[in-house]
Protein backbone atom coordinates (compact mmCIF):
# COMPACT_ATOMS: atom_id res chain seq x y z
CA UNK A 1 0.00 0.00 0.00
CA UNK A 2 1.48 3.30 -1.08
CA UNK A 3 1.58 6.11 1.44
CA UNK A 4 2.67 9.74 1.27
CA UNK A 5 5.85 8.71 3.10
CA UNK A 6 6.99 6.54 0.18
CA UNK A 7 6.92 9.48 -2.23
CA UNK A 8 8.54 11.82 0.31
CA UNK A 9 11.36 9.34 0.91
CA UNK A 10 11.90 9.00 -2.86
CA UNK A 11 11.99 12.79 -3.10
CA UNK A 12 14.45 13.02 -0.19
CA UNK A 13 16.71 10.42 -1.80
CA UNK A 14 16.71 12.33 -5.09
CA UNK A 15 17.46 15.60 -3.26
CA UNK A 16 20.37 14.05 -1.33
CA UNK A 17 21.87 12.58 -4.50
CA UNK A 18 21.64 16.01 -6.16
CA UNK A 19 23.27 17.61 -3.11
CA UNK A 20 26.05 15.02 -3.22
CA UNK A 21 26.62 15.90 -6.89
CA UNK A 22 26.84 19.60 -6.12
CA UNK A 23 29.26 19.04 -3.23
CA UNK A 24 31.44 16.24 -4.63
CA UNK A 25 31.88 16.91 -8.34
CA UNK A 26 34.37 19.45 -9.69
CA UNK A 27 32.94 19.71 -13.21
CA UNK A 28 30.65 22.75 -13.28
CA UNK A 29 28.25 21.06 -15.74
CA UNK A 30 27.74 18.11 -13.38
CA UNK A 31 27.23 20.54 -10.48
CA UNK A 32 24.49 22.10 -12.61
CA UNK A 33 22.92 18.69 -13.25
CA UNK A 34 22.89 18.12 -9.47
CA UNK A 35 21.00 21.39 -9.07
CA UNK A 36 18.42 20.16 -11.59
CA UNK A 37 17.99 16.92 -9.62
CA UNK A 38 17.35 18.93 -6.43
CA UNK A 39 14.71 21.11 -8.14
CA UNK A 40 12.97 18.01 -9.46
CA UNK A 41 12.98 16.37 -6.01
CA UNK A 42 11.08 19.40 -4.71
CA UNK A 43 8.60 19.03 -7.60
CA UNK A 44 8.02 15.36 -6.74
CA UNK A 45 7.13 16.16 -3.14
CA UNK A 46 4.81 18.98 -4.29
CA UNK A 47 2.93 16.67 -6.67
CA UNK A 48 2.76 13.98 -3.97
CA UNK A 49 1.25 16.42 -1.47
CA UNK A 50 -1.23 17.56 -4.13
CA UNK A 51 -2.37 13.98 -4.75
CA UNK A 52 -2.55 12.94 -1.09
CA UNK A 53 -4.58 16.01 0.00
CA UNK A 54 -7.50 15.95 -2.45
CA UNK A 55 -10.01 18.80 -2.67
CA UNK A 56 -13.52 17.53 -3.44
CA UNK A 57 -12.08 14.24 -4.65
CA UNK A 58 -9.66 15.88 -7.09
CA UNK A 59 -5.90 16.50 -6.66
CA UNK A 60 -4.92 20.01 -5.58
CA UNK A 61 -4.47 21.77 -8.93
CA UNK A 62 -3.02 24.88 -7.27
CA UNK A 63 0.00 22.76 -6.28
CA UNK A 64 0.25 21.44 -9.83
CA UNK A 65 0.25 25.00 -11.22
CA UNK A 66 3.04 25.77 -8.74
CA UNK A 67 5.01 22.84 -10.17
CA UNK A 68 4.35 24.28 -13.64
CA UNK A 69 5.88 27.60 -12.51
CA UNK A 70 8.87 25.83 -10.94
CA UNK A 71 9.52 23.93 -14.19
CA UNK A 72 9.32 27.17 -16.20
CA UNK A 73 11.72 29.03 -13.92
CA UNK A 74 14.08 26.02 -13.92
CA UNK A 75 14.10 25.99 -17.74
CA UNK A 76 14.98 29.72 -17.83
CA UNK A 77 17.64 29.11 -15.17
CA UNK A 78 19.21 26.32 -17.22
CA UNK A 79 19.41 28.54 -20.30
CA UNK A 80 21.03 31.43 -18.42
CA UNK A 81 23.32 29.14 -16.40
CA UNK A 82 24.62 27.34 -19.47
CA UNK A 83 25.26 30.68 -21.20
CA UNK A 84 27.28 31.77 -18.14
CA UNK A 85 29.21 28.47 -18.26
CA UNK A 86 30.02 29.06 -21.96
CA UNK A 87 31.19 32.61 -21.16
CA UNK A 88 33.35 31.28 -18.30
CA UNK A 89 34.82 28.63 -20.58
CA UNK A 90 35.69 31.28 -23.17
CA UNK A 91 37.45 33.37 -20.52
CA UNK A 92 39.14 30.53 -18.61
CA UNK A 93 39.34 27.50 -20.97
CA UNK A 94 38.18 25.29 -18.12
CA UNK A 95 34.99 23.94 -16.57
CA UNK A 96 36.56 22.82 -13.29
CA UNK A 97 35.22 24.74 -10.31
CA UNK A 98 38.73 24.71 -8.76
CA UNK A 99 39.93 26.95 -11.61
CA UNK A 100 37.01 29.38 -11.25
CA UNK A 101 37.32 30.71 -7.71
CA UNK A 102 38.06 34.38 -8.30
CA UNK A 103 35.28 36.93 -8.55
CA UNK A 104 37.30 39.08 -10.97
CA UNK A 105 39.84 37.98 -13.56
Amino acid sequence: MLTLGHYLLASGALFSIGLAGVLLRRNVLVVFMGLELMLNAANLSLVAFARFNPLNGLPDFDAQSFVFFVITVAAAEVAVGLAIIVALFRARRSVRVDDIHNLKF
Partner: peptide, 27 residues
Amino acid sequence: MSGAMAYLVAAVVLRSKISERPLPPLA
Protein backbone atom coordinates in the same frame (compact mmCIF):
# COMPACT_ATOMS: atom_id res chain seq x y z
CA MET B 1 26.74 16.42 4.33
CA SER B 2 24.54 14.68 1.77
CA GLY B 3 24.22 11.61 4.00
CA ALA B 4 23.14 13.87 6.87
CA MET B 5 20.58 15.48 4.55
CA ALA B 6 19.17 12.07 3.57
CA TYR B 7 19.07 10.99 7.23
CA LEU B 8 17.31 14.22 8.23
CA VAL B 9 14.59 13.83 5.57
CA ALA B 10 14.11 10.13 6.39
CA ALA B 11 13.90 10.81 10.14
CA VAL B 12 11.32 13.58 9.70
CA VAL B 13 9.22 11.58 7.20
CA LEU B 14 9.29 8.35 9.21
CA ARG B 15 8.27 10.08 12.44
CA SER B 16 5.50 12.33 11.11
CA LYS B 17 1.86 11.30 11.21
CA ILE B 18 0.89 12.57 7.74
CA SER B 19 3.38 10.31 5.97
CA GLU B 20 1.22 7.29 6.91
CA ARG B 21 -1.64 8.69 4.84
CA PRO B 22 -2.78 6.12 2.22
CA LEU B 23 -3.55 7.07 -1.38
CA PRO B 24 -7.04 8.63 -1.26
CA PRO B 25 -9.52 7.57 -3.95
CA LEU B 26 -10.53 10.17 -6.54
CA ALA B 27 -14.13 11.25 -7.16
